[in-house]
Amino acid sequence: MMNDLSPAWPIRHDRLPYEAKLDVREIAQIDLVVMHCTELPDLAMAREYGERVLYPAGTGNSGHYYIDRDGSVHCYVGPNFVAHHTRGYNLRAIGIELVNTGRYPDWYHSEHQNMNEPYTDMQVQAASALLLQLKTFLPNLQLIAGHEDLDTAEVDASNNPSCRVRRKCDPGPHFPWPRILSETGLTRLLPEAMA
């Protein structure tokens, strides 16, 4: 567990090519962190997906920070920019992605919905340390949620259109919520709390 005397966790700045095209926001607008998993096999593929241009402004979908299995933290988008990572929450949220296979490569196959890969201890340590660091310069940061908490939409299963599956299931059942909440002092934002 990181405390006030622990050194800052190193962050590698690997900004996406389109970062400057993203909307800029005031740091005071940020009160939420959304935890994700990449649902891809490695950081290189996550980077490739992040670099894809999907919008007319020349931007794509990406979190702000990516945590690889070895605990290395990579900043793809600075916190003062609005990244596209969680529908309806981007303006107020930081997105943190942990490299994890999730349901890859059959995300929407009805028989492939289990997320079996555990997070590494180094990833969890890095996530906790990063969250504590973010709290030091984001004055209104108090809340944390999983992508699965905020995006509860369902889609047709890829193998059976009569069956529905969750669009987003991350960070999934292996994410250590009790530990993260205890170590960071953040409050989990759940759908029933948003009514």
Rank of each mutant, 00 (worst) to 15 (best):
A93D: 04
P79Y: 10
P17K: 08
P139A: 09
P139D: 11
P178N: 11
A145W: 01
T184A: 08
R188T: 08
C169H: 01
N3C: 06
T86G: 02
A127N: 00
C75K: 05
P176S: 08
F175W: 15
R15I: 12
I94A: 04
I11L: 11
G58N: 11
V33H: 00
Q125E: 14
V77W: 00
L5Q: 14
A28Q: 06
E192C: 05
V124Q: 00
G88W: 02
W9A: 11
L5E: 12
L143Q: 12
L138S: 07
L190G: 01
D70C: 11
M122Y: 07
A153F: 06
D42M: 09
Q113C: 10
V77C: 12
D14K: 11
Q133D: 15
N90V: 07
Y119R: 04
I30G: 03
A57G: 03
T184D: 11
I96K: 01
P171H: 06
Y89C: 06
T59Q: 09
D70V: 13
H64Q: 07
L91G: 06
T38D: 05
G102V: 12
V34K: 00
R103C: 13
N3L: 05
D70F: 14
P79S: 12
R69W: 08
V165W: 00
M115Q: 03
D42S: 10
E26P: 02
V73L: 10
A145Y: 02
I180K: 04
E111G: 15
E148Y: 04
Y55G: 06
D14V: 08
L138R: 02
E97S: 15
L134P: 03
L134F: 06
P171T: 09
H64I: 07
P173E: 12
D68S: 14
C37L: 15
Y119G: 01
N61V: 10
P176V: 10
D151M: 12
V82K: 02
Y104K: 03
A93Y: 00
I94R: 00
A126Q: 00
N114P: 01
K168Q: 13
V33D: 06
L132Y: 01
L130G: 09
R87I: 13
H64C: 10
H74Q: 12
D121T: 13
L16D: 03
V155M: 11
S182Q: 15
R52C: 06
L190S: 02
A20F: 04
E19H: 00
Y55M: 14
D31I: 12
C75D: 09
R188A: 03
S6R: 09
Q123P: 00
F81D: 03
F175D: 01
T38L: 11
H74T: 15
D4G: 12
I94V: 14
C169K: 02
G172E: 05
V165D: 07
L134W: 01
C37N: 15
W177G: 06
D121C: 02
E183K: 01
Q29H: 08
L16V: 14
P79T: 13
T136K: 04
N90G: 05
A46T: 15
K135N: 09
H109P: 01
H64D: 13
L150W: 01
L91V: 07
T101C: 13
H147C: 12
S128Q: 07
R166Q: 14
P41R: 13
P178K: 11
N80Y: 02
G71R: 10
H36E: 14
R15M: 08
I96E: 02
N61L: 10
R92Q: 12
